[in-house]
């Protein structure tokens, strides 16, 4: 990426949106020191006011602290999942395109097998194995995500590998690290970045989806999907409460999708 000035408007908006959410996620515990799990049953379902900026839920928990907590979990999960999926997907894709033969066949077989299963079902199965485990969710989502990196990187790398530019560097005596850095990475980096942004959105949606059907993280963890389903019964008395995690989730996903915009 050469400088922020070349970012498109779409990406700028996405970046600002995500930046604001990140400030909320990190700033809230540092500055306001709210505790997402501290109950106060006599102060339930309070509308937003000076003390509770986003109000309180049915147990009188500070919603601002809970939303910030949910954001932290979402960002962290997205970071871990995308990091793992991108690194392993890029490595596998480049390896498959470079070596061809049985390595390529094996990796393609694994990727196609995973693709044949609906991603969310796979994540549900993993999540159901050890309910409430962050590690299990991370593993399952990464497993689904890396396939896209693998397939795209492999397809983009194939023509580079057989192309004359890489051959010319090979003839000049350069090793695989140089060939990757100079020839393969420039050809794939924009797509890897877009995939990473989409992947972040996908992993956040996936986690909240399994939270929504009670298979994901367990209460009282302030996870966005879980919060939505917990606040569902109160939508009549306190609609703003239900709207809060939904809005934040929407903004997160929108932010990542805008960030994925490919430069011209």
């Amino acid at each position: 990426m050469s400088g922020l000035s070349r970012l498109s408007i779409k990406r700028w908006v996405g970046l600002v949106l995500l930046g604001l959410l990140l400030v909320l996620a990190v700033g809230e515990p540092l500055l306001l020191n709210g505790d997402p799990n501290k109950q106060n049953l006599s102060a339930g379902l309070i509308s937003p006011n000076v003390q509770y900026w986003l109000g309180t839920d049915q147990y009188g928990r500070n919603m601002l602290a809970r939303i910030a907590g949910g954001l932290r979990i979402s960002f962290l999960l997205a970071l871990f999942c995308v990091g793992t999926a991108a690194v392993s997907g890029v490595l596998a894709g480049v390896l498959a395109a470079w070596q061809r033969g049985w390595i390529d066949i094996t990796l393609n077989f694994i990727a196609n097998t995973i693709l044949a299963l609906p991603g969310l079902v796979l994540i549900l199965i993993f999540a159901a194995l050890i309910p409430g485990s962050f590690a299990m969710l991370y593993l399952a989502i990464s497993l689904v995500l890396w396939v896209e990196f693998f397939r795209v990187v492999r397809a983009l790398t194939l023509p580079v590998i057989s192309g004359p530019q890489l051959q010319s560097s090979q003839i000049l005596g350069f090793g695989p690290v140089y060939l990757f850095r100079r020839h393969i990475w420039p050809a794939i980096r924009h797509d890897v970045f877009s995939l990473a942004a989409f992947g972040a959105a996908t992993s956040i949606i996936a986690m909240s989806s399994v939270g929504f059907v009670y298979v994901g993280l367990k209460p009282p963890t302030p996870e966005l999907g879980l919060m939505i389903v917990e606040l569902f019964p109160y939508y009549h008395e306190a609609p703003w409460l239900l709207a809060e995690p939904i809005t934040v989730l929407f903004m997160l996903v929108l932010g990542f999708h805008l960030l994925a915009d490919k430069p011209q």
């Binding site: 530019q165 010319s168 560097s169 003839i171 005596g173 100079r182 420039p186």
Partner: peptide
């Protein structure tokens, strides 16, 4: 050695990584 057998290409841009100054490629 590998780098003592060299090739010049029909289309010169095919022999150079794009988007990198030629000076840096020579320095490489």
């Amino acid at each position: 050695k590998r780098h003592q057998k060299l090739k010049l290409y029909q289309e010169p841009p095919n022999a150079f990584a794009a988007d990198v100054p030629l000076k840096r490629l020579l320095a490489d």
